[in-house]
Write a protein that binds this DNA or RNA. Structure first.
Lengths: 215, 215
DNA sequence: CGGTAAGCTGACGGCATGACAGGACAAGTG
DNA sequence: CACTTGTCCTGTCATGCCGTCAGCTTACCG
């Protein structure tokens, strides 16, 4: 599937080249965590990697291109989120636990990758197809599982017919993502981290099942 | 309250100056709508406003500073969102209508100001205090009303004691904001705009009241 | 050891940034 | 009407990043 790694000018990258490339990506990732996206400059990334701007341009068309690469890496890992929902039940106490673990796992994933996810979110919101396809890919594992759960409950007549599983799932996932991005905002609103999670789980449970959880 | 408008070097701006300043802000706003935040350059804004970069720097320290100004303007208008909730009922059919109108009004507000809100969101997520205070200010009218409604229902014993009104309200508002930012994402997930709204309203209603709406 | 392709960088034109001084302009004054 | 005053705008400059190229160095292989 993955063809050979290539430089911008078409050469195939060897061992050394791939190492440099990876180092640049790592440094970019650090820069994204420590300074605003708008201020991340090619020259800073190159300097930090102990190389020159020209080298950066051998491997990436621009900063945006490199970010896409980083996001791609992360998207590959996002499959792990599926485990948060695979084969889980939404009934009774198990349902409450499912909701809690989903919230927990999701927030943790977001926290670990917040810098890149911020940029992906921005790109997606700005309408860049590459970014919102990537965002879809990342969220898809959770989203489609959730939608399936909703659809199943619906088919058993436990939810209204006019509920749209995709819309519900998408909205819940968007909620989780947004809350994860703005946790600081909550704390300055007087809501503590620890209080946040159960309330999110409650909303997720309500959204999926239409009922309060039994705890 | 609003002191006189001042230039960066401390002079008070007169009529002509304020007009130029406003024109720069308008052009900046247009640029933000049409190109990625990262690519918005002072020189482009100045050119579009028919003036020179030096003039821009007389009124704003940099692009970010001007964006803050725009966001401040918008925050002033965001008070109108309060009307979506002031004196509304959350019981029976009126409750369903309240939820629907909130969703409608909120999405409309976001759509109208999406370009600036994207940047505010990014700044807030990056931890810039100025931006997330601004974000709080914008969302506060809706958030505090929602929290109050939740708290009231809770005091009447219609909701569990361990629900945190602030957390619920914040999460719902974050959901609305996130969905508004990524509507395109939904449509490419096969969820139509028109289907989205009632499902959001359902989630809001469930979150606030803990019950399904009576339609 | 020589050939070949990968890997890296110095250097350059171009553009954005941010500062300043000086000129244009409007409004009031004698 | 000339003159003054304070606001407003811009030409220009030093600095620094962008993005590209030619050309040098390094590594691999027969």
């Amino acid at each position: 599937m993955t063809g050979q790694v290539r430089t911008v000018d078409g050469r195939v990258a060897g061992k050394r080249g791939q190492a440099t490339r990876q180092k640049l990506l790592d440094c970019l990732s650090e820069m994204l965590s420590s300074s605003p996206y708008r201020d991340v400059k090619v020259i800073d990334v190159a300097r930090r990697a102990g190389t020159s701007p020209a080298t950066f341009y051998q491997y990436f068309p621009d900063v945006e291109g490199a970010v896409l690469e980083l996001a791609e890496e992360m998207a590959a890992e996002s499959g792990a989120l599926t485990e948060l929902l695979e084969g889980r039940s939404w009934t009774g106490r198990a349902g409450w636990q499912t909701a809690q673990e989903l919230v927990d796992g999701f927030l943790e994933f977001w926290r670990r990758n917040d810098a890149i996810l911020r940029v992906v979110d921005l790109g997606a919101a700005e309408g860049d197809k590459r970014f919102y396809k990537l965002r879809m890919k990342i969220l898809n594992s959770v989203n489609s599982s959730l939608a399936a759960s909703v659809a199943e409950l619906q088919s058993k007549g436990r939810l209204d017919k006019d509920v749209n599983p995709g819309a519900i799932a998408g909205a819940l996932v968007a909620m989780l993502a947004a809350v994860a991005s703005h946790q600081k905002g909550f704390s300055s609103w007087g809501v503590k981290q620890a209080e946040l999670k159960p309330n999110l789980a409650l909303l997720v449970h309500l959204g999926v099942t239409g009922r309060k959880p039994t705890k």
